[in-house]
Amino acid sequence: MHTHVRQLQQVQQQHQQQGQQQRQQQHAVHSLSMSEAQAGDTKPLNLCNAVNEALHQAMDSNDKALVFGEDVAFGGVFRCTVGLLERYGRRCFNTPLCEQGIVGFGIGLATQGYTPIAEIQFADYIYPAFDQLVNEAAKYRYRSGGTFTAGGLTVRAPYGAVGHGGHYHSQSVESFFTHVPGLKVVVPSSPAQAKGLLLSCIQDPDPCIFFEPKMLYRTSVEEVPVGEYTIPLGQAQVLREGADITLIGWGAQVHVLAQAAQAVADADGISCEVLDLRTLLPWDVQAVTASVNKTGRLLVSHEAPLSSGFGAELVAEVSRRCFLRLEAPPVRVCGSDTPFPLVFEPLYLPGVERVVDAIRATVRF
């Protein structure tokens, strides 16, 4: 019994240390978004507030934009929709707890020329709407020969680890949707990105799924342009130049990669190039292959389970396009092939230590 208690205490301490390290690195990762936005005035926002500001600006500029989902009228469980009901009235409204109904209603609105912005309260519960997204929204334009479209639809969903969510509130489900032509899948990793990428999704002619890393809602803070701006979809971003190995991630995992890159630079002199993929479908093949052709090595990391995770797609394409330039086999550092655990979350997640070990092993191959 005492041994079990000590193990739990060690796991909890590891989780606290991991969270503290992540918060210390938030400001070091993203000095990127200002140049992209070409904005003037900025203000400090966390990721949750940046999403809220994007929704306000989208509804200000488009009177056919509507926000709906479970509990969004009072601000949502994460408070991302605060103030929308008060300002826009019936254009922001609650729905029944029925994900297939939420997305189905959004598809119908989109086909009639509206701009629906639907919220799924947790990405873990997007599965009841899977058929609506995969068989209806994604194929609507194709099956009608371009006569009809559901392209105005954006589906927002908090996703990923949160520190205590367990197997029903911490899953990373992005790879299920990257297999579907007709959808776009986007994952921001900073407040400025969240605002610019969400506005791009709302304006995009294709249905978009926008996964918001809930771990970053309050922990990621940076200067965000005040005005309305967009960040192009389908373009990765180099966050750190390097020569020895390419590290690729998205969402909260980008911050883990940034910490690992700094750790091996300080301890081993290893030069890592860090890429934030940002859009998973379509993903930026040119930026990724250019980086790997330069460094000769690749490490991909994501919170989702290893098997059939989106990292496998990156590794496969890089192996095909960069084979003669590779100095070592591409590696993946990912979640485990188990349901997402609760108390053992720090052991499940691909943390800094696991990434550092993989970097060293790949460079020394």
Score class of each variant (00 low, 15 high):
His2Gly: 13
Gln10Phe: 00
Gln18Cys: 07
Gln24Lys: 13
Gln24His: 15
Gln24Ser: 14
Gln25Trp: 05
Ala28Ile: 00
Leu45Ala: 08
Ala54Thr: 05
Ala54Asp: 05
Ser61Tyr: 13
Asp63Glu: 14
Leu66His: 05
Glu70Ala: 08
Val77Lys: 05
Arg79Cys: 11
Gly83Trp: 09
Leu84Ala: 12
Leu84Trp: 08
Leu85Ala: 15
Leu85Gly: 12
Tyr88Val: 12
Cys92His: 01
Cys92Pro: 01
Cys92Ser: 10
Gln100Ala: 13
Gly108Ser: 11
Thr115Asp: 06
Glu119Cys: 04
Asp124Glu: 11
Asp124Leu: 01
Ala129Ile: 03
Asn135Asp: 02
Ala137Tyr: 04
Tyr140Ala: 04
Thr154Met: 03
Thr154Val: 10
His169Ala: 12
Ser170Cys: 11
Glu174His: 09
Phe176Ser: 02
Val180Lys: 00
Val186Leu: 07
Pro188Ser: 11
Pro188Gln: 06
Pro191Trp: 03
Ala192Thr: 10
Leu197Ser: 08
Ile202Trp: 05
Phe210Arg: 04
Phe210Asn: 07
Lys214Ser: 06
Lys214Gln: 02
Thr219His: 14
Pro225Cys: 11
Ala236Asp: 00
Val238Phe: 02
Arg240Trp: 08
Ala252Arg: 00
Val254Gly: 03
Leu257Gln: 01
Ala260Asp: 03
Gln262Cys: 02
Ala263Val: 03
Ala267Pro: 09
Asp268Val: 01
Ile270His: 06
Glu273Gly: 00
Thr279Asp: 10
Thr279Arg: 05
Ala290Asp: 14
Ala290Lys: 12
Gly296Pro: 00
Gly296Phe: 03
Arg297Leu: 01
Val300Tyr: 02
Glu303Phe: 04
Ser308Trp: 15
Gly309Ser: 01
Glu313Trp: 04
Ala316Trp: 11
Glu317Phe: 09
Ser319His: 06
Cys322Val: 06
Phe340Ala: 07
Leu342Val: 08
Phe344Met: 14
Pro346Gly: 06
Gly351Thr: 01
Glu353Gly: 02
Arg360Ser: 01
